[in-house]
Design a protein around this nucleic acid. Sequence first.
DNA 1: TATGAATGAGGGTTCATTCAT
DNA 2: TATGAATGAACCCTCATTCAT
Lengths: 208, 208, 208, 208
Amino acid sequence: MPRLSRKEREKVRHREGILAAAEAVFAERGYAGATVHEIAERAEFSVGYLYTLFENKEDIYVRLVEKRVVDFFHELDERMQRQDGVLDRIRAAIRATFEFFHHNRQFFHIFTHFTPESDARGPMYMPENCRKQYDEHLARMTGVFEEGIRRGVLAEADPVTLALCLHGIIRSVIWHSLYTTRTVEPEEATEAIESIFFNGILAGSNEQ
Amino acid sequence: MPRLSRKEREKVRHREGILAAAEAVFAERGYAGATVHEIAERAEFSVGYLYTLFENKEDIYVRLVEKRVVDFFHELDERMQRQDGVLDRIRAAIRATFEFFHHNRQFFHIFTHFTPESDARGPMYMPENCRKQYDEHLARMTGVFEEGIRRGVLAEADPVTLALCLHGIIRSVIWHSLYTTRTVEPEEATEAIESIFFNGILAGSNEQ
Amino acid sequence: MPRLSRKEREKVRHREGILAAAEAVFAERGYAGATVHEIAERAEFSVGYLYTLFENKEDIYVRLVEKRVVDFFHELDERMQRQDGVLDRIRAAIRATFEFFHHNRQFFHIFTHFTPESDARGPMYMPENCRKQYDEHLARMTGVFEEGIRRGVLAEADPVTLALCLHGIIRSVIWHSLYTTRTVEPEEATEAIESIFFNGILAGSNEQ
Amino acid sequence: MPRLSRKEREKVRHREGILAAAEAVFAERGYAGATVHEIAERAEFSVGYLYTLFENKEDIYVRLVEKRVVDFFHELDERMQRQDGVLDRIRAAIRATFEFFHHNRQFFHIFTHFTPESDARGPMYMPENCRKQYDEHLARMTGVFEEGIRRGVLAEADPVTLALCLHGIIRSVIWHSLYTTRTVEPEEATEAIESIFFNGILAGSNEQ
DNA sequence: TATGAATGAGGGTTCATTCAT
DNA sequence: TATGAATGAACCCTCATTCAT
């Protein structure tokens, strides 16, 4: 682990401050709607300084998204690895997502609205290498569901669709939380979702 | 219903052509990223003419979103009303959504990414009166779930969460379709989702 | 010759007005020192309009220089062609240059200071295709001197150096005129230069 | 002459290093196109330090130009003074110029392109006090030509024009050397120019 | 009705200059 | 003395909007 000089540590702190400000602005206005001036203002730095730490507006966006996405998927993975059974892993994924959301509410304004157009620079476009991260994550989740089916713990179904459904459910709850500006308790949300996702909504089916 | 003169009918046609062009552009670039010139170009009208039919860029966006959202929720409602039982209504909602998506693929680039910031003009911001439409729709769906629970067809659960979950699952599948640019067969998708949502994913729970 | 519509003719007039304004600004400030705003202001157009007629700042510069250089060398050539003897051609070149200068004083601020750096964008850099024009012109002049020497009208000497010297003498007089902001009478200047260039400066050598 | 302390001598050395770097940058980019950062970088000093030795960008330019111009005219003068006859003085001026060029190639990118706008800050503008230097030099040269005419060595002609012509011829050869990036041998160049300038280009006139 | 030339405020970016260290 | 992080005015360019035709 490299020791950083005081200057270097300060630089890192400044970069983080700017990324935090950028997160808020991109979340509110989208990529095209955000202005570098507003980011600088909220970060309480001059515009010029941003350009000494980042190449340009796009670089700020890409670094920001990259950082958070990597952090998020890393956290998610680690939490899942710690569990043994398939069901526990799924539970862990749900809880970890809500906890990450709890601490990174802002970012989900971006994350939840990723638009993956490859050609055009969409409203919240997903940078190239985040797309890879995302695809890998989806593959890992799919793997978990496949294993569950193979072991007879889960019912027969397309594992990709299962992964998507879980993702969708979580995202919807998060979206509603952003939409109504109400907080979500990770614990509660996890339990509610788990119950629905595992047992379905029909009466008489939820005695696990 | 008022009879429209030829001129008026033509005007309506022009408005529709412009909205269709706008839909494509907003979908690709987001609200801030879209330019009035590009919309005009794709609609094969001059910029100036757009400004005789719409107040400004925002007006185009708002009218477009309003129109599609109203159409969509109207269709959804109607389809659900035609069914009697709770389960059939839910089924109808799923299928209707996928069918609407099948015919209005473009719009879901906007719809799926609605960001509901009220103050700032977000990347795909939801206009005031669409928000109302959406809230009403959610309330209706919640009502259906409530009824199901009351009648003992559905297991005890927070009906709002149920509505959100259904919404989320559908959205996720649609998002994945947009993301991978593959088409989704309404029939198939409906069945897959229905099975998961009704019975859950655990083995031994999916004999209805 | 294509007939132009009124609109098209106006466009051409506007382009010319802008180029004239640009000429003044580039002459005063150099390429890097000139601002598009100032050009627009002097041309009495808005900045935005310039960008509908030209690609960007560089395009304005390149078009301007190209136009004038082509005009100049074309004029020069034509005047020389009309003469038969070598001496008359040289005389014609001198006079034509001074006359062009008389009518395009402004441009010589740019022309006289062309810097032909190929890599860096110098203070008054010579666009690619003007360089070609210039090289061709120099070659033609060199040809004239060669012919003179071959026919025994001119003394033995390196024809390229002769061409350069003539060029230099003229340029110097023009430069001095710009420098002192005094006008130069084409007639007079031609005679003075001709005498020096043909006969040299030594006493007893100027009886032709 | 005041004795300088070690510190002061070092300071002088630093100033010279910076001016040398500045010379290269101004030569390549022009006044407006040059950046203080690039100068600092090439001089291997920090920007901040430049500002302790010079007032600002303009000051660097002015000092640089002043220094070289003074050096150049001083050298030129001295060399001419050493000669007795008018013709030898002219020869000395030509040779001295080419030798100075040989050792200060870089500077002639600036020197050859001096633009004398007084109001605007031109692309290679000539600082006030260099203008004075230049005027004095021109006056001295004019004086030499006047003397030559008075003594009957040179043919009757406007001495200012003669000075300008000589200047122009030399400049043109230098310019061509810069343009083609080929070196010029002072000896050869002097002879070639001398022959043309003294005898003219007509056949039968160059037996001195 | 329908056009597109013309506008100018505002965006991304650069760079001369300052100042704490 | 010497540094380079930090500033912000001013650059080039875009685009929502207007208006004469």
